Amino acid sequence: MENKRLGIIGGMGPKATSVFMDRIIDHTVAERDQDHIDMLVLNHATLPDRTEVILENDGRKFLTAIEPDFRFMEHAGVSHIAIPCNTSHYFYDDMQGMTTIPIINMVEETLKVIAERYGKGSQAGLLATNGTVRSGVYRKAAERLGIRLYEPDASVQQQVMDIIYDFKKGKKDSSAELESVVRQLLDREGCDCAILACTELSCIPVSEETAAYCADAMDVLVRKSIELSGKRFG
């Protein structure tokens, strides 16, 4: 299969982008440098906060800021674009309309994995930013694929937001809090799995037992990015 160059528009947040790159490298089957993927990474950390622009109905602010990034990717000759930020996918159609380069849709791909793993009619609990939840981007995709989406109540959603923004501030010991929220979705709300639908959540380690019931959107994007770049996931 032809080797293809991957474009990454990151910075949402910067640490999540670096973890995303590490996972691509770690999971690409390779025996030497030349077996890895050529990646063009734009760590655009100053992009407007996605949750804020969605809640304030000011999406044009984000789209205006990110549009030049697609020109950069076109000039660099990438074959696909990965954007490791779930909330930004609220603007997926608008962003895809800015470029002829296919943007990998991590929301759609994640729900496809859940449908394949748990089947139609299964219930998935959504752990995401307020912007992602409010936007309905996961809800709409879940309906198309026959997945029942559970969105946490206000108190649990605030816990999730605290975990996400604590991580952005540099707090590294949020594993217990995240584990607790996931177990609540599984045990109390009857979910078959929990969707880690924020790349900050993907960076927080959880036990193997808990991870087995998590659908990690970042990991799904990693696998798809590797495969579309002509390499094997391992």
Rank of each mutant, 00 (worst) to 15 (best):
S18T: 13
L126I: 05
I37T: 07
S155W: 00
L145A: 03
Q34A: 03
L149Y: 08
G59L: 06
T99R: 00
H89V: 09
L201M: 11
Y118F: 14
A30H: 13
M95A: 05
A115P: 15
A176C: 00
I163S: 04
G10L: 07
H80F: 15
L186H: 03
H89G: 12
F72A: 14
I226P: 15
T99K: 00
D38A: 11
D153H: 09
E56S: 15
R117V: 09
R5S: 12
V137M: 13
E208V: 09
V41Q: 00
L55S: 02
F72V: 14
V222I: 11
G121K: 13
F233L: 01
N130I: 07
L127G: 03
I163F: 02
L186N: 00
I66D: 01
G125M: 05
T46I: 10
Y213E: 13
A76R: 13
M73G: 04
V53Q: 02
R32M: 10
T46S: 15
S18V: 15
Q158G: 05
R223E: 14
T46R: 14
R5K: 15
Y90D: 14
C214F: 08
S180M: 11
A212N: 07
E151Q: 13
E209N: 08
I9F: 08
R144M: 10
A124I: 13
R50V: 09
I9L: 11
G97I: 08
G77I: 08
D216L: 06
D58F: 01
R32D: 10
A30T: 05
G11V: 15
Y90W: 07
K168A: 10
I24H: 00
Y165D: 06
T129H: 05
V113L: 02
A211N: 12
D58Y: 01
Q96T: 09
S18D: 04
K120L: 04
Y92T: 12
F62R: 01
A141R: 10
D58C: 05
D93H: 11
L111H: 05
G7P: 15
A217T: 14
S174V: 00
A115S: 14
E31P: 00
P205G: 00
I104A: 07
V78E: 07
S225H: 06
A76S: 13
D49Q: 08
R144W: 02
R5Y: 01
R117P: 12
R50H: 08
D162R: 10
N130G: 05
P152N: 12
E151S: 09
M12T: 06
A115M: 04
V160L: 08
V78S: 04
T210I: 15
R144D: 12
E200M: 09
I66E: 07
K140D: 12
C198K: 01
D219W: 07
D38S: 13
K140F: 03
T99L: 06
L127A: 06
T199P: 08
N43K: 01
C203I: 02
D26K: 14
S207A: 02
P14T: 15
A197K: 01
S79E: 09
V206E: 04
D166S: 10
V160Q: 06
I195G: 15
T132C: 11
V181M: 10
D38C: 00
I8W: 10
I24K: 04
K169M: 05
A142C: 07
A194G: 13
Y90M: 02
L201C: 10
I103L: 10
D38L: 11
I204C: 09
S122V: 06
T99Q: 03
Y92Q: 09
S175Y: 03
G190A: 03
K169S: 12
